[in-house]
Simulated scan of single mutants.
Amino acid sequence: MTKHPKKKTSLRTRLLTGTVAAAALGAGTFGAVSATAAEPAPTQTPAAATAQPRDLTQSTHLTIDAATRAAQAALDAAERENQRVTVAVVDRNGNTVVTLRGDGAGPQSYESAERKAYTAVSWDAPTSELAKRLESAPNLKDIPGTLFLAGGAPVTAKGAPIAGIGVAGAPSGALDEKFAQAGVAALSR
């Protein structure tokens, strides 16, 4: 049996090993203390993240259920008159919430309905009224995403526009707008 001579470890190796062991022991103790703490310590909120009530505004939004109900009411009104239309409902920012394309609606009706809804909510007015304004301000039609043809109706709450309903595909803008108004009326029931 041969004996191996005992290797000496350097001071540096012993210090490094001791430091690693102390760190592991400290981490385990910290974890155990953290895991058993009853309540977290209060944290400081940065001043920039704390908003005062006077710095906030509230807005009202149409729910997806309400938007769907309005769109379906407009589509139903059109179908009762044998009209093939598309109905779009947009939120206050002009983002599409729901679009229903009726059976047989033309391919152009989808985009037209969205643009009419966007135009109605943007100016908080029916698009038939806005189309009349083009006589005195023809450059309005150059605003991206708008369509100044009858068929869009705004939805308001608390005196402010919260959505727009656009209908396209009927043979006249007056019919499109009549169906859009049926969608608005469905929201007050």
Rank of each mutant, 00 (worst) to 15 (best):
R54W: 11
R101A: 07
T2H: 15
V155W: 03
A21R: 06
E135H: 06
A70W: 00
N82E: 11
L147K: 00
L56T: 13
P144D: 11
A48K: 13
G26I: 15
N139A: 14
A23M: 12
V89G: 05
E114Y: 08
A185V: 07
N93C: 11
Q83H: 14
R14M: 14
A131W: 02
A38Y: 12
L134V: 14
A163Y: 07
E79L: 10
A168L: 06
R189V: 13
A153T: 11
A73M: 06
T17W: 14
A117Q: 01
I165E: 00
Q52M: 15
T68N: 06
A174T: 11
K116G: 02
L147T: 03
R115I: 09
I64N: 15
R115G: 02
Q83A: 08
D142E: 14
R14C: 10
E129F: 05
A105P: 03
A168H: 03
S112R: 04
A157K: 05
G183L: 08
N95P: 02
L130E: 03
V184W: 04
P107D: 14
G102N: 04
A74K: 04
R115L: 07
T86I: 03
Q58I: 15
T119Q: 04
L100G: 02
A117L: 03
T119H: 01
T146S: 14
G31C: 05
T29S: 12
A67Y: 02
T156M: 07
A67C: 10
P161F: 00
K116M: 12
M1D: 07
T43G: 08
P5Q: 09
L16S: 10
K132H: 09
D176E: 13
A137D: 14
G102S: 07
P107V: 11
P171K: 08
E129Q: 10
G151R: 00
G169I: 02
N95T: 10
P138T: 09
A73D: 06
T9H: 13
R133C: 04
A125T: 05
Y118W: 14
G151N: 01
A120C: 12
I143W: 11
L134G: 04
L100Q: 10
A77E: 02
M1C: 12
A71R: 02
E135N: 09
Q58M: 15
T50L: 15
T50M: 15
F148W: 07
L175P: 02
D91T: 06
W123Y: 13
A23P: 03
V85L: 02
A74D: 01
Q72D: 10
A49T: 12
T45K: 11
Q83Y: 08
K158P: 07
P144N: 12
A174K: 09
S109P: 01
A125H: 06
K7L: 14
T63L: 11
E114F: 06
P126I: 06
T146C: 07
T60E: 09
T127K: 00
T45W: 09
S128N: 08
G18F: 01
S59A: 15
D91P: 05
V121L: 05
G173F: 03
S109G: 01
H61K: 07
K158G: 15
A51R: 15
T36K: 10
T50P: 07
R69Y: 04
T57C: 10
